[in-house]
Write a protein that binds this DNA or RNA. Structure first.
Lengths: 194, 194, 194, 194
DNA sequence: TATGAATGAGAATTCATTCAT
DNA sequence: CATGAATGAATTCTCATTCAT
């Protein structure tokens, strides 16, 4: 029953953060939306920032886990690449709320910037690991793989942001997006050579 | 002499926004840093948000212009790609302050979000235009080019953010970064096919 | 068993009031220290102020009673004086907790100020009564005796506060303090005349 | 003109603290009484406690200075004693506001307790110095003089509090009070011997 | 232009008290 | 008797903005 209210608060906060941004949303808005008293907020969170940090940590952790469970296939590099990108787009689509909150409205707090930085380090590691299994990157150094990993993350994140958040497209666009993104790399290997 | 003070205010604001973010920085901080009186701020800017919007607009416009002046070469597609990426990295490096302000600290105001959104539309158009000149993308549709354009923007921005802001690397890393990023596309086209 | 909890609450409260004062101490601190639930507090006390008043009343009453049981000797005036002062110092030493709470941290509530005022009236009456038995004050008026009584109370209280609370001295200092205080009166009566 | 408002705030605060106590008085009460805006308070003081500390420091310092300027006479010990006591009563009478605030309502803050403790140390030193000039205390040790000093302070403070604050008597009572208090020491030297 | 004291609406936070279990 | 989650009124404090000089 207690966790009930905490969950109400989190849901209300996520909705409001997404709608009007983190800074615009007041604690009084959150509690009103959640249907609890002002003081109840402080029963579960030390402050608005503390609340956001804990929500963000949970959401970003979910993304990392979802990405890790991605591709264990034994296909060609092109197929691996395609699956990885598609998987990443799917995950970002499912988590577009937090993506929107962090990218559009920003948060602006050293502590939360830390959470975000740690998140990128984690997914970079996941991607780097996946790249090591591709023949194409066989003789790339660790540093070079890191550059590739981050460039892929940026690619997916920007496309996901523009299509899922700005244009508000649904999951049916994922395949098309993934094909074009990968096609920019993959197809060239044979089509462009013809 | 008046413009002097305005410039002081802008420099002070940029420095503080970069250090502590837009929301944490108070007008009183800015005027203290700029060495002018509290009221003087309002001789040059309508409000704090107005100031930030005008600074952001100017910085982002600079980036757009710089990018536009980029590739007028008549080289091969690979060379064009490499030059475009390197140019973009250079521009982001020169403007890493605004990159840091917007990416790390966020913006957090609907009106400024508009500035940022317009910025991305503009550079997307610039990139799309450039891509049209590449033989490789000859039979891509407008929508497909837009996807490619945004994925390139995301790629460069993320790498620039991680290396120039997070790792705080200097401009001497630009070539290496550009080569790897493009190599992820380029080499495959001929080397990987051997 | 119920009284057990009430006593726990009182002990916890006294400890915390002494340490950090009445206003700084929260009900939540008291119940945590006492090891009971928040609501339990209100089974035994109407409010925080009610609790403090009842504790203060009890403590101060103890002091009054202890003082009353003091001097029933039939010695000389000097001896009576010395015994009275020493007795008072002893009583204050035993009750230095409440002394510290009221003097150092203050009370800060009209209703409790009443308790304190009544306390001083009572001990003043006790002292005045004792003074009446001393030949020295035979022809002092009631008002004059009241002045003497209060001055003696102030004297003892200040010395007790400075030595037992501020300097945190133990009961072994009582004799020395009493001798000096009385000596300031006593010796003059005969020694200084020689 | 700025100091004007600061002074208004101090006067309003002193009045309210005296009337209803430190804790009961809200900052909103103070600013209303002073006729300034809520924010103006924070232009001059960091907090209510900060304000009170600065006021208390000033008032108590005044008392110390007033006491120091007291008796430089070359009279007999009895006369010195009487003058010292009367002087102290006068000073306390003039400063009965702060006396009332600190003694009746209490303050309850470690930092302010420090101010009060320092105050007592200072006046103790002043009194001790004065006592050294009296033949009567010629062969008292420092420690013994300290006891005497504090007992005199307690005496005067309690009497002042009871007569000036509780009974609200005017300055015309000072002589009578001083005579009785000193008489308790002085007169005995000859009258009681008869 | 330039100043900076003053403003006051608005937000965060606290904590004594209640009450359903 | 005992609990402890929930309450919400009350207070402090912030800071962008104004305006008389």
């Amino acid at each position: 029953m207690g966790e009930d209210k905490k969950d109400n608060l989190i849901q209300a906060a996520l909705m409001l953060f997404e709608e009007q941004g983190y800074h615009t949303t007041k604690i009084s808005d959150i509690v009103r939306e959640a249907g609890v008293a002002q003081g109840t907020f402080y029963l579960y969170f030390k402050s608005k920032e503390d609340m956001f940090r804990s929500i963000a940590e949970a959401c970003l952790e979910e993304i990392v886990v979802a990405l890790q469970q991605g591709g264990v296939s034994k296909d060609t590099d092109e197929q691996k690449d395609y699956l990885m990108i598609r998987r990443a787009l799917e995950v970002y689509h499912e988590n577009k709320t937090i993506l929107k909150i962090i990218n559009r409205h920003g948060v602006g707090s050293q502590e939360i910037a830390g959470v975000s930085e740690a998140f990128y380090q984690q997914i970079m590691m996941v991607i780097k690991q996946a790249l090591r299994d591709e023949a194409m990157y066989a003789n790339y150094s660790e540093d070079q793989l890191e550059i590739i990993a981050f460039s892929k993350i940026g690619m997916v994140e920007m496309v996901a942001y523009q299509w899922f958040v700005v244009k508000n497209c649904g999951s049916e666009t994922i395949n098309a997006l993934a094909q074009i993104i990968v096609g920019d790399l993959g197809p060239c290997k044979f089509k462009a050579m013809e």
